[in-house]
């Protein structure tokens, strides 16, 4: 006489292919006449199918950060080497963005270099400093302030839409833009400092405006980034 609970263990083994031929035949015959064990068999198959549909689960984002910290603490990995300036701004994945922005940044770099040279030469007693009337200087500074105000207004107007765009972009591309914006901000601040240090320096003024212009252009590029890629 077949005892159902005992046979159900055999059904479980049969599902896994763990029964010999005789045992398998016994189970098959029993399932044909026992609705309860047949239901049990169907359920095991349903569970098996369900298990196949289980998906791997995502760990929390901070797990890698914690892991990396521990790896560094144990000396298993070297601290991330500081990326080269160009690599930081222009990752290899986006070669099509390189030429225009490298040109812009190069121009700013040359400008800053020139500023330093200019600053040094204007401080040198052997080089005569051009004499410019005070009223003219004030007029130039006023124009500079107006231009700065215009650029700041443009940046503010673009900031919401560029931010929204960044959130919708592929994270890798968004990161590139974030990095570029950070670089632009850095140079913008450098230019501002140069102007603060020598307000009358025409090169400093020119490169400050150039930095503003490049930032606005970058933000416009972000807003229209769909058409770029």
């Amino acid at each position: 006489m077949i005892n159902c609970p005992d046979l159900q263990e055999d059904v479980s083994l049969w599902v896994d292919g763990q029964l010999d031929l005789t045992g398998a035949e016994t189970v098959k015959r029993h399932l044909e006449c026992c609705p309860e064990c047949a239901a049990f068999h169907r359920d095991l198959n349903a569970i098996g199918e369900g298990v196949k549909g289980l998906e791997p689960l995502d760990p929390p984002e901070h797990l890698w950060t914690n892991l990396r910290t521990q790896l560094e603490a144990e000396g298993l990995i070297r601290s991330k080497p500081k990326e080269s300036f160009w690599a930081a701004i222009f990752p290899k994945r986006l070669p099509d963005l390189k030429p225009a922005w490298s040109g812009a940044i190069l121009a700013l770099l040359l400008g800053i270099g020139s500023l330093l040279v200019y600053d040094l030469t204007t401080r040198s007693p052997v080089v005569p400093v051009p004499v410019v009337s005070t009223s003219h200087q004030e007029a130039v500074l006023e124009e500079l302030r107006k231009a700065e105000a215009n650029y700041r207004a443009a940046i503010e107007a673009l900031s919401a839409s560029s931010q929204k765009k960044l959130e919708s972009l592929d994270p890798v591309l968004a990161q590139v833009f974030h990095d570029n914006l950070a670089t632009m901000d850095y140079y913008l601040n450098e230019c501002k400092r140069a102007v603060e240090n020598s307000p009358q320096n025409p090169l400093a003024q020119r490169y400050l405006l150039a930095a503003y212009q490049k930032k606005v252009e970058l933000m416009q590029t972000i807003v229209t980034s769909d058409s770029l890629l």
Binding site: P35, E36, A38, A39, R42, D43, A46, I47, E49, G50
Partner: peptide
């Protein structure tokens, strides 16, 4: 005979 069809 209640089976798990549609439950899993």
């Amino acid at each position: 005979d209640i089976d798990l069809l549609g439950v899993v």
